[in-house]
């Protein structure tokens, strides 16, 4: 089959999947989102009551929380700050919508040509490399291509499995807004380590609003899913290829977050993979022999 035909067919399949998503999943997701937004003040109030009860009953929670906690005031302060932040950003709503529309319009076009002419991009990049180093350049590009491909596909597969595990668990314990919370969690889990912690916060808040027992069960489900991901799925899917030390990942995430926020945190690991492969090849090509000579 011709490549352009394959890409067009894929687009049609993709359009079908989006239609199926809109038909099957979207109504539930929309209702959950609307309900969540509408019941946000009640969530704060319920949470405040729950914490108040637990503080007054002299249990374990009361020993952890400070006596003088005024959660409602604190929560309303945070809500005001969040509203101010939202209004600052939403005043520019036309710009946001236009950017989203441009993104929705532009990405499929770029993607179409990337999928159709993937190899041509590699050739045009190799034009910049002197003839003497073309073979090495091609090897580096192939390595980058393979590493990025396996990294992205593995992460997506891992996060989908993690999301499915959590969703089944949350349905089992009857957690409200399960689909919405799991979707947020799946997106945030693309950020290693930190994403799992950030995504657990809204889940635990909603669960705690229902009952402390529900929060405990939710925490257990999150921990169990994370452990299955880390100790069973990751070694199978990732293997030992592109193993990055946890300390390196944390340093990279701090840098990425500081440079470009959440987007920076999402992009910093693939960028590190590219830079690492390029530097390794440059070192082998230009410096390895000289360094070995000096050492000997």
């Amino acid at each position: 089959m011709k490549r352009w035909l394959a890409v067009t067919l894929l687009y049609l399949v993709f359009a079908g999947l989006i239609a199926l998503f809109i038909w099957l999943v979207w109504p539930t997701l929309r209702d959950q989102t609307n309900n969540f937004i509408n019941s946000a003040p009640e969530v704060v109030e319920d949470l405040s009551d729950q914490v108040q009860d637990k503080t007054e009953d002299g249990g374990v929670v009361s020993s952890v929380l400070p006596k003088s906690i005024d959660l409602e005031t604190r929560m309303s302060e945070y809500a005001q700050k969040a509203a101010a932040w939202a209004s600052t950003y939403l005043t520019n709503i036309i710009s946001v919508i236009s950017r989203a529309v441009v993104l929705i319009g532009v990405v499929p076009v770029i993607l179409f040509f990337m999928l159709k002419d993937g190899r041509k991009l590699e050739d045009s990049l190799l034009y910049l490399v002197p003839r003497k180093y073309k073979a090495e350049g091609r090897a580096a590009l192939s390595e980058i291509d393979e590493a990025l491909g396996s990294f992205i596909v593995s992460r997506v597969v891992l996060n989908i499995i993690l999301g499915a595990l959590m969703y089944v668990g949350f349905l089992f314990i009857g957690l409200p807004y399960a689909l919405l919370l799991v979707l947020i969690s799946v997106v945030l889990n693309f950020i290693p380590y930190i994403g799992a912690i950030i995504s657990a916060i809204p889940i635990l808040v909603v669960a705690f609003m229902e009952s402390p027992m529900m929060a405990l069960w939710s925490l257990l489900i999150i921990l169990a899913a994370q452990q299955i991901q880390d100790h069973i799925l990751t070694p199978i899917i990732f293997g030992k290829t592109m193993a990055i030390h946890p300390v390196t990942i944390i340093v990279l995430l701090l840098l990425g977050g500081d440079l470009a926020g959440v987007l920076g945190m999402l992009l910093i690991i693939p960028a590190y993979i590219v830079v690492k492969i390029l530097l390794t090849h440059i070192y082998k090509l230009f410096f390895q022999e000289k360094v070995e000579e000096i050492v000997e």
Binding site: L111, G118, G149
Partner: peptide
Amino acid sequence: LILPISLSGFLYYLLRPIVGFFT
């Protein structure tokens, strides 16, 4: 350019095996 390019790149690596399967 960073957002559309990186989003396209992400989807490219995700969909490339499927295109390979079709071709």
